[in-house]
Amino acid sequence: MSRIVSITLQNNDDARPIIEAIEKDNPDATVNLYPAMVKIDCDGRLIVKQETVEGLLGREWDVQELHLSIVSIAGNVDEEDDYFELSWNI
């Protein structure tokens, strides 16, 4: 049975460091490109870490800035001050 969690982000300047951070922190993730957007799939669990995004951006980054770039998600959400995580409990 598939247990893919997924996040779709706009393919723009705000989202690019987030996409890069996700690739870094989730080595098993698959990045699918579509016109104007990027869909990232990962088996079971996927995390966006504030620290990694800040490192790439070179400034403070509020995890909730994710709200500006997000297009869609699949998975249970856990949103904290320093990370955003999607998972299935299988």
Binding site: M1, S2, R3, I4, V5, S6, A74, G75, W88, I90
Partner: peptide, 8 residues
């Protein structure tokens, strides 16, 4: 996506 959801 629906498959993963309903498995959950």
């Amino acid at each position: 996506a629906g498959g993963a959801l309903f498995a959950d």
